[in-house]
Amino acid sequence: MITSPTFVLVPGAGATSFLWNPVVTELALRGHRALPVELPGHGFDTVFPAGYDCPQDTAALASAPSPVAELLLQDYVEHTLAIVRRAAEHGPVVLVGHSMGGSTVTGVANAAPELLAHIVYVCAYCCVELPSVAAYAPRPAADDILSIARKTVWIGDPRKTGTARTNPRDGGVVTIQHELLMAELDPVLAPAVLNYALQPDESMRVMLADASVDRESWPKIPRTYIRTTADRVLPTSVQDRMIAEADALSSGVSFAVHSLEASHFVPLTRPVAVAEILAGLG
């Protein structure tokens, strides 16, 4: 059993540290240290694009260049690595990534595997045979909820804004975002989640960056994957592909896999179950 670990929790695309708050609470009540990471350009560190503030100017928002468009995956990795180094001074570190946060976990594990007691991917991207998050992005049928969301929730031209942009404050998309991201959550809570846990922009540079695992050092780190079997954003077929590709890298260390009947925002919708898995790592 890992002794007195610190859980360092990395959010995904366009997400703030708020996404992890329920899991942090559950871990703390079990006697563990837990730190949700606020990535560069996120949370209090973000600058909103023109047109986003109230009253909103949706035409300006659809075309405004993003203040966070220049952010790189390396910025996320270096920021998180600095946190991991400080946390490691006090004992073992378990690095956990949700969704696109898996690319940051991989980057830290590639750079400093000696600092990590365990890495955990929570319905997260683990790039092995393909190089980037964008390369693994699912390509659903036209009538799939993800395809519909891509047409109605994402706004603007990424070639002009530099980002994947949504408008979490748009009441017209709350229903589809609830179904897509957090279907098992009380819909009354969805607007608060969208306002606190999401911000409009995520840098396309991060999504397109090389996030592949280091084939020498990364496979030696104990690792866990939490599958979300009701996920409409990252289907289990894609999750299972990445798990299989990662396991094929080495015969000595494979993913310990846990499955939860949950949608993509599982840290918010099933925090007790996620915390129990994390607290039970051995």
Results as ranks from 00 to 15, higher is better:
Ile221Val: 12
Asp157Ile: 04
Thr25Ile: 11
Tyr125Asp: 08
Asp210Phe: 11
Cys123Phe: 05
Ser217Ala: 15
Val238Thr: 05
Arg241Ile: 01
Met182Tyr: 13
Pro187Ala: 07
Val105Glu: 03
His118Gly: 00
Ser263Phe: 09
Phe255Met: 12
Ala262Asn: 03
Val23Pro: 10
Leu35Gln: 04
Glu78Ser: 12
Ser4Glu: 07
Arg139Leu: 13
Thr161Asp: 06
Thr152Asp: 06
Leu278Asn: 10
Glu276Cys: 09
Ala13Trp: 00
Val84Ser: 09
Leu61Met: 04
Ser212Arg: 09
Thr166Glu: 13
Asp157Ser: 10
Gly102Ser: 10
Ser237Leu: 14
Ser259Gly: 02
Ala183Glu: 14
Leu185Cys: 10
His178Pro: 03
Val120Asp: 05
Val8Leu: 11
Val93Phe: 03
His79Met: 10
Arg33Asn: 13
Ile119Ser: 02
Gly97Tyr: 07
Pro191His: 05
Val257Met: 13
Gly97Met: 07
Asp240Gly: 11
Ala13Leu: 10
Asp201Gly: 06
Asp53Arg: 14
His264Gln: 00
Leu29Glu: 15
Pro271Gln: 05
Leu268Asn: 04
Leu189Tyr: 14
Val274Thr: 09
Pro36Gly: 00
Tyr52Leu: 04
Ala62Ser: 15
Val257Gly: 08
Ala211Trp: 06
Arg150Glu: 14
His98Asp: 08
Val8Asp: 05
Val120Cys: 04
Ser237Met: 11
Val108Pro: 08
Trp154Arg: 12
Leu116Asp: 07
Leu39Ile: 09
Val84Asp: 12
Lys151Gly: 03
Leu260Tyr: 08
Ala135Met: 11
Leu61Phe: 08
Ser63Gly: 11
Ala190Ser: 15
Leu19Gly: 11
Ala183Ile: 11
Glu216Val: 15
Val108Tyr: 09
Gly14Met: 05
Gly172Phe: 08
Ala256Asp: 13
Ala109Lys: 00
Pro138Glu: 03
Ala88Ser: 14
Ala13Thr: 04
Leu180Lys: 06
Leu146Ala: 15
Ala117Phe: 02
Pro36Lys: 00
Thr106Ser: 05
Thr224Asn: 12
Tyr125Lys: 02
Leu249Asp: 06
Leu189Gly: 06
His118Cys: 02
Ile2Asp: 01
Thr16Cys: 12
Glu216Cys: 14
Met182Val: 04
Pro113Glu: 09
Gln74Tyr: 11
Pro5Val: 00
Ser66Ala: 07
Gly12Asp: 03
Ser203Ala: 15
Asp75His: 15
Asp53Thr: 10
His32Asp: 03
Leu39Asn: 10
Thr229Asn: 07
Ala244Tyr: 08
Glu184Arg: 01
Thr224Phe: 01
Pro40Thr: 07
Gln239Lys: 00
Ala190Gln: 13
Leu95Gln: 04
Arg169Asn: 14
Gly97Asp: 10
Phe18Trp: 15
Ile148Ala: 14
Leu281Thr: 00
Val253Leu: 03
Ser132Tyr: 14
His79Gln: 13
Arg215Asn: 02
Asn110Asp: 06
Val24Gln: 09
Glu38Asn: 05
Asp75Glu: 14
Phe18Pro: 07
Pro200Gly: 07
Leu249Phe: 10
Ile221Thr: 09
Ser250Tyr: 05
Val24Leu: 02
Ser263Pro: 05
Thr152Gly: 02
Pro22Ile: 00
Ser237Glu: 15
Phe265Gly: 13
Thr25Glu: 15
Asp170Ile: 03
Gly91Pro: 06
Tyr136Leu: 11
Pro131Ala: 04
Val8Ile: 12
Val213Leu: 05
Pro222Trp: 05
Val233His: 00
Ile277Leu: 13
Val233Leu: 12
Leu95Cys: 02
Leu115Tyr: 03
